[in-house]
């Protein structure tokens, strides 16, 4: 057990956890932030995607020690009230089906828009291919990212 200091959704936290424990399980089982989901544990599905210093990471394989002194943003912290342009677009286009993959999809797209405010279809595919959706909401994910991109202003895309 070790103490790791991380900023989570804007709040500085001292987390007691084994250093090699994946960020996902620290978030879910130690801190009770269940927005990030478990889908594969092998960085294959993207369900666990969160932002680490603004970059999309697969929290199921990244140890908590790698987050020391850094900032993590989860779906719960992307906005206070679901008002991030991606969240809004997601609802307007009725993207969610079962919804399980959605926190990961949105966080992955948030990192994309933060570094590339107007991605092409190919760039969207290249980034979002990290995230699986068994319900097959891909057509709407593409559309929603484009809709949000049209509205997003530089600086809010990182969500922190």
């Amino acid at each position: 057990m070790a103490k790791v200091t991380v900023t989570i959704n804007g709040e500085r936290r001292d987390v007691e956890a084994p250093p090699e424990m994946p960020i996902l399980w620290v978030l879910r089982d130690v801190l009770g932030l269940t927005g990030a989901k478990f889908g594969c544990g092998m960085a294959l599905c993207g369900s666990c995607t969160v932002l680490l210093d603004g970059e999309a990471i697969r929290a199921c394989i990244k140890p908590i020690s790698s987050a020391a002194g850094k900032s993590i943003v989860t779906i719960e912290g992307l906005s206070d009230d679901g008002s991030h342009p991606l969240q809004v677009a997601w609802r307007e286009l009725n993207v969610p089906q079962c919804g399980y993959c959605m926190p990961g999809q949105i966080m992955n797209a948030a990192a994309l828009l933060a570094r590339n405010p107007s991605p092409t279809d190919a760039e969207i595919d290249e980034t979002q291919r990290a995230n699986l959706c068994r319900c097959g909401t891909y057509p709407r994910i593409r559309e929603a990212i484009k809709m949000a991109a049209d509205r997003v202003t530089v600086g809010s895309g990182g969500g922190s």
């Binding site: 879910r28 932030l33 269940t34 927005g35 990030a36 989901k37 478990f38 989860t74 779906i75 719960e76 992307l78 906005s79 009230d81 679901g82 969240q87 997601w90 609802r91 307007e92 009725n94 969610p96 919804g99 399980y100 959605m102 926190p103 949105i106």
Partner: peptide, 18 residues
């Protein structure tokens, strides 16, 4: 619009392990 869209897009929707 789906009645659960807000819960899903904010991570508040509770699934089996949540």
């Amino acid at each position: 619009d789906g009645v659960d869209n807000l819960a899903i897009t904010t991570g508040a929707a509770v699934y089996g392990a949540d």
